[in-house]
Computed example of a mutant assay.
Amino acid sequence: MTIKAGTLIDGTGAEPLTDMIITVVDDRISAIRPAAESSEPVDLDCGDLTVIPGLIDCHDHLDLDVGDEEAQSREPVSYMAMKAVANAKVVLDAGITTLRYLGAPHGVDLELRRAIAAGEIPGPRLFVAAEPIMRTGGHAHFLGREADGVDDVRRAVREQLKKGADQIKVMASGGMSTAGSSPIVQEFTDEEIAAAIDEAHRALRPIAAHAHGGSGVTVAVRHGVDTIEHGVLLTREQVELIARSDTVLISTESVARAVAETPDMPDHYREKISGSLAASARMLAWAHEAGVTVAVGCDTAHARMDIEMSALVEAGWNPLEAIRCLTLNGAKVIRQQSELGSIEVGKIADLVAIDGDPLTDPSALRSVHHVMQAGRLVN
Rank of each mutant, 00 (worst) to 15 (best):
Q160K: 13
E192F: 09
A86V: 09
I207V: 15
H369I: 11
L102A: 14
R154I: 15
M171L: 14
K162S: 11
D48P: 04
M134E: 01
G224M: 06
T178P: 10
N379L: 15
S39Y: 00
A278R: 12
G54E: 06
A279H: 15
T360L: 07
T300Y: 01
G180S: 13
I242Q: 05
I323S: 01
H369V: 14
E40Q: 10
A258M: 08
E40K: 06
R335I: 07
D48H: 15
V219I: 15
L320A: 07
L99P: 04
P34H: 15
A194D: 12
A311V: 04
I22S: 07
F188S: 05
M372H: 09
D267S: 12
V371D: 04
L312H: 01
R33D: 04
T7M: 05
V51S: 11
D264W: 01
I21N: 08
S342T: 09
G13Y: 04
A71G: 15
D190S: 14
V255F: 01
E70S: 01
K89Q: 13
Q186T: 01
P362I: 02
R155E: 11
K163N: 12
G67D: 02
K347C: 05
L62H: 07
G356V: 06
E192Y: 05
Q167C: 10
W317K: 00
R100W: 11
D43Q: 03
V170S: 04
D350G: 00
A303I: 08
G375A: 03
M372L: 15
S78I: 12
E271I: 11
P76I: 11
A35M: 14
R335L: 13
G175C: 01
A36T: 15
G6R: 11
H369A: 09
I116N: 06
A117H: 14
A203Y: 08
P358N: 09
A281F: 03
D357C: 10
V221D: 05
R244Y: 01
C58F: 13
A195T: 09
E120F: 12
A200T: 05
I168W: 09
D148V: 11
T2N: 12
G214N: 08
D299F: 05
T227M: 03
G164V: 09
M20C: 07
H223W: 08
Q160S: 12
E131I: 02
P183A: 10
T136Q: 12
T300P: 00
D190A: 13
M265C: 04
I32Y: 13
S173F: 10
E308C: 08
A81S: 13
A220N: 09
E314N: 07
I348E: 00
E192P: 03
D361C: 08
A278F: 11
R125E: 10
L44V: 14
T360F: 02
